[in-house]
Every structure is written in structure tokens, then in C-alpha cells.
């Protein structure tokens, strides 16, 4: 599974299927601070992703 990290770096993860929240935990990312897009679409953290999927982890900004 290819993962685009919030800082712009890229990671490859070898899992067959995993929930998004488990993936975030593995990456040591606080789920409250990000949204995750699977294959270009934002998905809830209960959603699963498989090795063929591409994830983009976006850090939510809140300032104005």
C-alpha cells in the first residue's frame, strides 16, 4: 500500500487489508489531526484499505 504522508514524504506499507484507524496507529499519527483519502476520496477511519490502494494523509489546518 502506497501512503502519502502529511509532510509530503511517501511510505510503502505491507499489509493485505487493514482499517484506516489501525494504519494511522501504526504510523503513530493522531487520527483527530488528519483526514485520509483512499484513492483520492476522503473516507471514514472505519473504512479498510488493501495493498492495491493509495492513501493520502492530510493534516487538517484550523487557523484563520
Amino acid at each position: 500500500m502506497k501512503i502519502a504522508m502529511p509532510d509530503g514524504s511517501r511510505k510503502e506499507m505491507t499489509v493485505s487489508v487493514a482499517r484506516i484507524d489501525e494504519i494511522l496507529k501504526e504510523l503513530n499519527i493522531n487520527p483527530v489531526e488528519v483526514v485520509v483519502a483512499k484513492n483520492g476520496k476522503i473516507v471514514p477511519e472505519e473504512e479498510t484499505a488493501s495493498c492495491a490502494d493509495e492513501l493520502k494523509i492530510v493534516r487538517i489546518v484550523h487557523g484563520g
Binding site: 492530510v58 487538517i60 489546518v61 484563520g64
Partner: peptide, 25 residues
């Protein structure tokens, strides 16, 4: 719209047509 440092985000919510802000965040 929202910003932090060099980063920012924007989306347009049209009630009845699009995801709302809470759907996305």
C-alpha cells in the same frame, strides 16, 4: 478556508448538493 504556516485548505459547501463541513471534518 483554513490555514497554518505555509499550508491551507478550502472547500465550498452548498447545502442540499454537497458534503457539509462536518461530513469532511
Amino acid at each position: 478556508g483554513a490555514i497554518c504556516g505555509y499550508q491551507g485548505q478550502a472547500t465550498t459547501v452548498i447545502p442540499g448538493k454537497t458534503a457539509c463541513l462536518r461530513c469532511t471534518f
